[in-house]
Amino acid sequence: MNVPEWWYLVLSAVLFSLGALGLLIRRNPLVMFMCVELMLNAVNLTFVTFSRSLNDIGGQVVVFFVLVVAAAEVTVGLGIIVSILRRKPGTTADDLSLLKG
């Protein structure tokens, strides 16, 4: 007896919203990045669930690409965070208002 598809979809909805909540309320840029990873993983779970429900490999290929893009995003994002925090230690997202003009 298989697990119904909508259980997975509800779980990924909850995970996505938890990630969004963390992104909204946390100030540490590193933790905000982790919340973005949570949201990406929730979407990946949705893709794999639909891949099974449509009996097609396409959804899993998309998840593969999402993994690659997430790796690239983490590389560049952490590089930016490192170069910001090296200059101003203890910076939070609220302090990064240099582009305000």
Binding site: S51, R52, L54, N55, D56, I57, G58, V61
Partner: peptide
Amino acid sequence: GESSKIAALD
């Protein structure tokens, strides 16, 4: 959506 468009899992 079309079922098993790219390749069927089974």
